[in-house]
């Protein structure tokens, strides 16, 4: 079913394209780093009135959230970049090839997740430079699991959106109406329980909530749910969204 060679070649293309556009690398890393510096340092001495445990500094709390944001935006972007392929004609080259859409979706997802994870690791390194530290050294390896799951989830979401869009005009709207609400609801900036209950119920529907929670559990030993539970829920999101992406790809093709 899955054509590994097709997956590999799509992955290779994504990585090559990424490595050849330094402006894309810089611009997507700049935003999370700016947020990290200004929010992290700006609120360094703020008293959060009991919503954060005393044992944890705000910057430690913030780092997993910002990594989540970085993964979210770069992954949705990677998924939606199918629209650029369509705009520049390359999508046809992929569509007419004798490979199934499952392989195409998986190839794109793994390719996008590679670049997305590289960027998030850079953000994590910058965070350590400006004062973030974790007692959990193994955490730097295990954190790759939630990172991977988050990126696959949001690339799939990007692919689903792209399959249902006719042109690139709606791109800005997606970023504002999809990415930001997902980011704000996820508890990246503050614990979701600090929100009124009629808002934070929506946080439970946001896949990023579980991803950020898992990363925070691994790096800071602070999580709302057990990390294993977060990983489990994220994996379910992966399966649902990947399948939906394949479904919409098939649908958009069989006109």
């Amino acid at each position: 079913m899955i054509d590994t060679r097709a997956v590999y070649v799509l992955w290779l293309r994504e990585v090559k394209r990424y490595s050849r556009s330094p402006s894309r690398i810089v611009s997507t890393i700049a935003m999370p780093i700016l947020l990290l510096i200004f929010l992290g340092l700006g609120f360094r001495q703020a008293n959060f009135g009991g919503i954060l445990p005393k044992s944890i500094s705000y910057i430690s709390f913030l780092v997993p959230g910002i990594i989540g944001m970085s993964l979210l935006s770069t992954s949705v972007f990677a998924g939606i970049s199918v629209l650029w392929d369509r705009e520049f004609g390359f999508l046809k080259e992929i569509t007419v090839a004798p490979i199934n859409n499952l392989s195409i979706v998986i190839g794109r997802a793994i390719g996008g997740s590679t670049t997305s994870m590289i960027q998030s690791i850079i953000v994590l390194i910058v965070a350590m430079v400006i004062g973030f530290s974790s007692e959990n050294l193994i955490g730097f390896v295990t954190i790759l699991i939630p990172m991977f799951l988050i990126s696959i989830i949001f690339i799939s979401l990007g692919l689903i959106l792209a399959a249902n869009m006719t042109d690139i005009q709606g791109f800005g709207m997606i970023m504002n109406l999809v990415v930001f609400p997902l980011f704000l609801l996820s508890g990246a900036l503050f614990p979701i329980k600090a929100l009124p209950s009629y808002i934070y119920v929506f946080s439970y529907l946001d896949p990023l909530t579980y991803g950020v929670d898992a990363m925070r559990g691994i790096l800071c030993n602070l999580s709302a749910f057990p990390v294993v539970f977060d990983i489990f829920i994220s994996s379910i999101f992966v399966i649902i969204l990947l399948s939906a992406a394949v479904y919409f790809f098939n649908k958009s093709e069989s006109k």
Partner: peptide
């Protein structure tokens, strides 16, 4: 045109051959 402008000529052909 349906080429990937971030890839070289050979890479475009390689992509095709591999797929």
């Amino acid at each position: 045109p349906a080429l990937d402008s971030y890839l070289t000529a050979r890479e475009n052909l390689e992509f095709h051959a591999m797929i």
